[in-house]
């Protein structure tokens, strides 16, 4: 979709196609770099993210504070890294939750078949029309604004698309010869799931997961932006953007740096997801 790609050869592996997609590869490296500095931030951040220095509050970017300081004199770069750790962490864990639920639900629906399957998929349709952001906000307020709850709440509403896609793929496989062969050889349902469904779903799952992460991070940022997600003194990119937006007239750097990093991260995730899909999903690679 992004970079012009030569017509893929039939024998070419998905990996080769992916490597040729420059935008996706660069996005991948960018994400690796961002994740590395964020997760290493306790060791490499120039200042402790909570350290206040009221004598140097609300300073514009300078040599001592590359991205400036906030109203309490905390170093923005250090906070950006720590916030990134939280945001990425939410992205990863909540996506795993969504992945687990989505795979189980999707495969189960395809396995039971018939009316139960219809009902299960109708349920997904209906739930996905509901105002899920409201539910996430309610959950975080009810069960406390702690990290595990945010993971669960955000992941708990993000599995719907995944379940739909997984169910469609499983359904197609269910009638195929290799699954019938495994059945006639007496393999158990669990064995078929583990040995046949999962490996064949792996590509789809990878693509889905990459494309779920940005949505999940966005949801966390939304909730944190409203002051109902991650709580001070911890921070996340959404919360930093909120704090920056409140005083953007006086200190625009407090808004700009988290916004740029957050948008770039989401952009890269989307590029990477698109690249993976074009490379590994034969059906969607048509022009």
């Amino acid at each position: 979709m992004s970079a012009p790609v030569a017509e893929p050869l039939a024998s070419e592996s998905g990996w080769h196609r992916f490597v040729r997609d420059r935008a996706a590869v660069w996005s991948g490296w960018f994400l690796v770099a961002i994740a590395a500095v964020c997760f290493l931030s306790p060791w490499i951040a120039p200042y402790p993210f909570m350290a206040q220095d009221l004598a140097h509050s609300a300073m514009a970017p300078s040599a001592a504070h590359w991205l400036g300081t906030d109203l309490l004199g905390r170093d923005v770069l250090s906070r950006l890294l720590q916030g990134g750790m939280i945001s990425l962490f939410v992205g990863l864990i909540a996506t795993s939750v969504a992945l687990a639920v989505g795979i189980c639900y999707g495969v189960l629906a395809a396995e039971v078949g018939g009316r139960a399957e219809d009902a299960m998929m109708r349920f997904v349709d209906i739930v996905s029309t509901l105002p899920l952001t409201l539910i996430v906000i309610l959950c975080t307020v009810v069960f406390g604004q702690n990290m595990p709850m945010i993971f669960l709440a955000v992941g708990g509403v993000s599995w719907l698309t995944m379940a739909r896609i997984i169910r469609n793929q499983t359904r197609e496989m269910k009638g195929s010869q290799f699954v019938q062969a495994a059945e006639s050889l007496g393999q158990s349902r669990w064995g078929i799931f583990r040995r046949h469904y999962l490996p064949n779903l792996a590509g789809t799952i990878a693509v889905c997961a990459t494309l779920t992460v940005p949505g999940v991070m966005l949801l966390e940022a939304f909730v944190s932006f409203l002051g109902l997600g991650v709580k001070a003194p911890m921070t996340s990119w959404g919360l930093m953007i909120k704090e920056g937006a409140d005083i953007m007239e006086e200190c625009p750097w407090l808004l700009i740096s988290p916004s740029v990093v957050f948008a770039l991260t989401l952009l890269s995730l989307n590029f990477l997801g698109d690249g993976l899909r074009d490379a590994f999903d034969p059906r969607s690679s048509r022009k």
């Binding site: 939304f222 959404g238 953007i241 920056g244 937006a245 953007m248 916004s259 948008a263 989401l266 952009l267």
Partner: peptide, 15 residues
Amino acid sequence: TLVGICVPSFVLGPV
């Protein structure tokens, strides 16, 4: 449009 997809409303609004 790619930028539009990745820039959340709470970034675009303040900007």
